[in-house]
Simulated assay, not measured.
Amino acid sequence: MKTLVEHLSQYAEYHRDRRNIATHFVGIPLIVLAVAELLSRPGLEVAGLWLSPAALVAAAAAIFYLRLDLRYGLLMSVLLLLSLWFGAALAVQSTALWLSVGVALFVVGWIIQFVGHYYEGRKPAFVDDLMGLLVGPLFVAAELGFLLGLRKDIERAVEERAGPTCIRSKNALA
């Protein structure tokens, strides 16, 4: 299994333009919420917990994140639990509301992602490696931590491998 730095660095190679990273702060959470919501049906309540395909996917993702790094794993687990709560709340609503909200979040999230990749001048990471779909939310959490001055050792290691973030000019894309 790759290390945290290896996963973040590989993903970061596709995300060095600050505008692209900024779009990911909006697009990825929307997509995660959409997936949690859309996979919350079918489901059933057991001992106050909503059990659904979303819960299974979130549990597998949480295990992956925890194996990579305890601190990020705990943060991602909390974020996944919040997403599951959101999904469960909408799963019990009418089918029209559940489906329209889920599809809208998913489509808008991906549109925002592709706008960011237009700025980047590069395809999304998941096109070359499907693990990018799982690493993306972790990347956003890590980038937020870096902006807050946290985990500087990880940030330095990622930038050593992927290069610094910048704003690319149109000439750089040619």
Rank of each mutant, 00 (worst) to 15 (best):
F146Q: 01
L66H: 01
I154N: 04
L144H: 12
V78N: 13
G136H: 06
L99N: 05
L33A: 12
F126D: 05
P124G: 11
E143Q: 13
G136N: 06
F114P: 11
V26G: 05
L39T: 08
A12Y: 04
A12I: 03
Y11W: 13
L173R: 14
E160H: 10
L84Y: 06
F139E: 06
V158W: 08
F25W: 01
L66N: 07
L33P: 00
A36M: 12
L105A: 08
V78R: 09
A174Y: 14
Y119K: 13
V32S: 03
A125Q: 04
L150S: 12
A34E: 07
I21Q: 02
D69C: 00
T3F: 10
A36T: 02
V46F: 15
K152E: 15
G43I: 02
Y118N: 10
D129H: 12
T165S: 15
F114W: 14
G121K: 05
W50S: 04
M131E: 12
V140M: 01
V46K: 13
N171Q: 15
A96P: 00
L75Q: 08
G73R: 06
G87A: 04
G132N: 12
R19V: 00
L173D: 03
T165D: 12
R16S: 01
L144Q: 11
A104R: 02
R16D: 04
D17M: 09
E159M: 15
A12P: 13
F64E: 09
A36V: 05
E45K: 14
G109Q: 04
E159P: 09
L68D: 00
I154A: 01
A104Y: 00
E45W: 13
A59G: 11
A61Q: 07
A172W: 11
S94E: 08
R19A: 12
E159K: 15
A162W: 09
G87N: 04
L51D: 06
K170D: 12
L49G: 10
